[in-house]
Design a protein around this nucleic acid. Sequence first.
DNA 1: GTGGTCTAGACCACA
DNA 2: GTGGTCTAGACCACG
Lengths: 126, 126, 126, 126
Amino acid sequence: MYIKIDFESEKAIYTQLMEQIIEGIASGQLRDGEPLPSVRQMAEDIGINLHTVNKAYNLLKAEGYIKLDRRKGAVVSLNFHNSKDQIKEKICNDLKPILADAYCKKISRDELAELVNKIYERFDKA
Amino acid sequence: MYIKIDFESEKAIYTQLMEQIIEGIASGQLRDGEPLPSVRQMAEDIGINLHTVNKAYNLLKAEGYIKLDRRKGAVVSLNFHNSKDQIKEKICNDLKPILADAYCKKISRDELAELVNKIYERFDKA
Amino acid sequence: MYIKIDFESEKAIYTQLMEQIIEGIASGQLRDGEPLPSVRQMAEDIGINLHTVNKAYNLLKAEGYIKLDRRKGAVVSLNFHNSKDQIKEKICNDLKPILADAYCKKISRDELAELVNKIYERFDKA
Amino acid sequence: MYIKIDFESEKAIYTQLMEQIIEGIASGQLRDGEPLPSVRQMAEDIGINLHTVNKAYNLLKAEGYIKLDRRKGAVVSLNFHNSKDQIKEKICNDLKPILADAYCKKISRDELAELVNKIYERFDKA
DNA sequence: GTGGTCTAGACCACA
DNA sequence: GTGGTCTAGACCACG
């Protein structure tokens, strides 16, 4: 899968990397059990520092997205620790500021639902 | 309106402040034309430095949420600069990583819609 | 002549007032020898503080635009102190940052000349 | 490129810094893609506080003159957000008070055009 | 009183 | 090393 880092973004590179891997999983480009490039390989591919890739991988592991194996490297392995309610609460908190912004800018509930659906569809198709 | 800063949060204080003011506007607690506390007052109220409040206010101004009147200090004043399409695109980008995360964690489209609606309802009520 | 203050402007109110009076003179709405409203009257008319009008009038006097007379109040009275070269140098310095900005933003020399002429025409007509 | 701050000037230091960087770009001393000194370096070079440099850099970024690359620091990168008409309108507004002043001081249209051309020529040569 | 500017020094996240 | 954040305290311009 292609990773594309925006070096001018406000977002930290390791965050961008994490998000793109998660999106890769959501969209079916990366499947459970599938190996990720080694830290070294990934760093070289996208032209960033080893440490940065390492940090992203470790955080993904902590969140339950991947396993890190000394021999096999990083492997997608979905294994989340939290209850559905905890997950929902986190999502709610993440969503709130974005929706407040959208609401102030007169994005209607329907327009928003459309945006959400558009994104979700891309994931579902896979 | 009450502002509550979480000093343990990852989020920068000025970001939390901005988000809460935006949520205050969305939820109708702050109305267009209503004055905000002065930077000094707000800083004292929530126990942070006035420069931090200043940064939040200036960013809110740049985004079109408030204006800084020479005589009256900060006043809520909604005046956004971007087209609806630009706004939607930004929201989409903000939403994507959160939805990807939700999708991986098996939050169904309906569950998500419910969360979104719950948040929007709180705004609409006001 | 009408004075219109923008209270949200970056520019200080007294500066706006000065500039509009100067523009009024340039455009012929205010002629040499013509009286200006009293400090009190002007302040009331445009809804600002006495001190602010006072500051503008005093600066206009210092620059040679008006005379202040205890009995007759403020009167337009053009009487500049500097040599043409000094004046030109000042204009040059004021112009430089604006033109640098324009140049970077790909405003051609012709486009710029057009803007300058458009402004000057309004003055000349009077 | 050399930066020269006038500590006696009315103009804020960060404004002077911004203007000189913009003039540097206009005059070809700074080219698109070229790196700027780090905030600390620049601050040290010109003997001011790094926060002041920071403010200038952030404003330049907001105006589309530079970008702040996570890896390389500040880099000249011209990318303006406004339409040509918006740009022209802003220039017009900036120009108006200066031209009014010039007109009152009997600077003819030709003399003014000469001044403008002199400045523009310096940019064009580069 | 207000916000704006500048300085100083500290700590952190990132790469 | 970089920029980002936060705090602190000072002074100024404005109204």
